[in-house]
Design a protein around this nucleic acid. Sequence first.
RNA 1: GCCCCCAUAGCUCAGUGGAUAGAGCGUUGCCCUCCGGAGGCAAAAACCCGCGUUCGAGUCGCGGUGGGGGUACCA
Length: 593
Amino acid sequence: MNNLNQKSIELQINNILKQNGLPEQEFFIWNSLPFSGVSGTSTSFFQYAATIARRYKNGEITLPSLPLNAQDISNLIVENLDLPPLYSNVEAAKGYLNFYYSQSQHYQQVVDNVLNQGEKFGWGEAKGERILVEFSQPNTHKAFHVGHLRNVVIGDAICNILEAAGYDVVRANYINDTGLHVIKWLWNYQKRHMGERPGEDKTRWMGDLYAEANHKMEESPEAEAEVRALFTRWDQRDEEVMALWRESRQWSLEGFDQIYELLGVRFDHIFYDHELEKPGQKLVEDLIQKGIAIDERPEGPVIIRLDDLLGLNKETYRVLVILRSDGTSLYATKDLPLAISKFEKFNPDRSVYVIDVRQSLYLQQIYKTLAVMGHSDWAERCYHLSYEIVNLPGNVTIASREGTVVLLEDLVREAENRALDVVKEKNPELSAEIMQNVAHMVALGAIKYPMLARDNNKIVTFDWKSALDFNGQAAPYIQYAHVRANSILRRLEGPLPESFAPQYSMEPSEVQLIDLISRLPGEIQRAAQEYKPLHLTNLAYELARAFNDFYMQCPVLKAEPEVSSARLRLVAAARQAIANVLHILGIAAPEVM
RNA sequence: GCCCCCAUAGCUCAGUGGAUAGAGCGUUGCCCUCCGGAGGCAAAAACCCGCGUUCGAGUCGCGGUGGGGGUACCA
């Protein structure tokens, strides 16, 4: 919408330049005006002026009259420009051309657009491109802690963002239900817990037994041999081991379902480790046959010397181990068939891996191996969406082996208790059921927001105090703005006023709010392009702040009829924009709180 | 050794090569006869160092310093 107006201005500017014997500007960069309380669009003339000056100096052009600086050229434009109706004013200041919107036109354009599009306001046109996003990747037989949470929260938000931006998204999970960690768990269960079953909180119990397994292994020297032996029985599909594996695996899967439901996350397809183990081992044989992999068994493992294969002298991709010397499988054994399977099943234009930064080299090795195998087209479509880990205060790494974990269940329970206390205090007349509901929405928002509101490559430090602090720059603040907007609209009797162009002079806080609402579609595209939910947490917070400011300064229901009608529509648009951006971030927008 | 990431206010973080570097927490002082105070207003307070590229650098490049991570049979 604004692009059309900008294009028409660009045309005019170039016409004026041409008429004055000046070269045309090839491209324009438009930005929002950086002044608060006004809205408009602005383009810099420094770039252009500098180019002109350089070409003049080089004798490429002759200038019609001298001296001619950025300010002179800007003035020339301002004097000769025929402003489109959306704008009320244009000025040349400090090398910029600033176009101010006509408040009433801009208001109407933005607000009507939001209210017409409703829940789809901000959504982009379908791009006809499919993106598969793999995220979460939990290990069965292990705990689920706040470190894992960041992956799920980022992955889910990225899927929503890509969808909103216009992509066709496949949400994929990859559950690691085999491997050494599982065998350790089975070993411990057989030795110490045979016949026991998990309670209500299945994942915690599985994690406790896993941590215990690690401790016991450190204590007893014969344990490692026993675990090895068990792994071999597993590999030979020993029926007793398999039966126990199937049962215990199911406990973990049910626990994960509880967690995903709690978080409001869904998947379109789940890949399982065990389905890929045998194909992986077969693929390894294949790679040995083709001379890509080197079989060092039994003394060593099966490896791929990537740098040698690629003819690189400097160590870059190093060596990838794809099978243990005893023939049992590694991550890489299964990640290769997994990568292939994704393309065969879904043929995505992009295959995204949401995995923490520590696996960067490993993933580059996997992608390169795909290329070496002759699938360079697939390799090029793979993308590692890397993010930094969640640490505990003092830069302590969360480790499920050590048991230095903050479990998701504990975090959610604490946050819900805290939120419930606040709801009871703030809004005692709500029913118990609604209170519980609100507490849940607030708690989860508060937990998710900090995981999204810092850049992907920044370490998040988890501490209880700030996790349970609902004040300030946090999800509850944004949710509260939504509730306030909602409570105004609830008092409205009858339908929302019809669209119109208000003639009163708007307050700066109104103009600011309109401006921020209008940015949502662009920020969704940017967040999708850069894989950064951060852009949307920023906008969500700014929207909430602008709304609270507006709420403070501008009476809605008690204002003059024209003003009141205009503000009611603006409140409805703000509520919609806040709800939409929260929804994309995977955070609920409560009606009351 | 080689590779990657980080460094902005006391703390936690924003900051499309562009106009006066913004928030939250904490500190200090204010604002409910007013649509919900989980709110608002105000004050003090910052770009690790050096050299470059550029009309213009917190942002880009190179070199330091400090911290974190990765680097053949963990995941």
